[in-house]
């Protein structure tokens, strides 16, 4: 869906559902997912429909993902960090995660 204009910024290694992904310093989680061509970041808790980041400005809550074990974080507001573990969310969040 998206590509980078140039390879600016140092690489950051993160994983998405266990798979290694190269992100860039300054990326947010949502942007890193888009750059990696990841189709959707969650399925909805109501009908299970797939969703991907929609607004990238913190208002739509469609980019909710699990970051380092904490569910329902707004991916567009969380900057990536080396070693960050991101998981896509399936339906309702599990209590305690």
């Amino acid at each position: 869906m998206f590509k980078r204009l140039g390879e600016v910024g140092a690489a950051v290694a993160i994983t998405v559902d266990g798979k290694p992904i190269r992100a860039r310093v300054g990326d947010t989680v949502a942007v890193a997912l888009l750059a990696a061509g990841i189709d959707h970041c969650r399925t909805t808790p109501v009908t299970g429909a797939p969703r991907a980041p929609y607004c990238l400005m913190g208002v739509c809550f469609d980019c909710l993902v699990t970051v380092d074990g904490v569910g329902s974080r707004q991916g567009c507001l969380v900057p990536v960090r080396d070693g960050m573990k991101i998981e896509t969310q399936q339906g309702k969040r599990e209590a305690g995660r």
């Binding site: 869906m1 998206f2 590509k3 980078r4 204009l5 140039g6 600016v8 860039r24 300054g26 990326d27 947010t28 942007v31 888009l34 750059a35 189709d39 959707h40 797939p50 969703r51 991907a52 980041p53 929609y54 607004c55 990238l56 400005m57």
Partner: peptide
């Protein structure tokens, strides 16, 4: 997925140097 706001694409460009592909 694949439908986004125009603002999202602008943010992707401005803040992250990313463009539609």
């Amino acid at each position: 997925p694949g439908v986004m706001t125009g603002g999202a694409a602008q943010t992707a460009l401005k803040a992250y140097g990313m463009v539609p592909d």
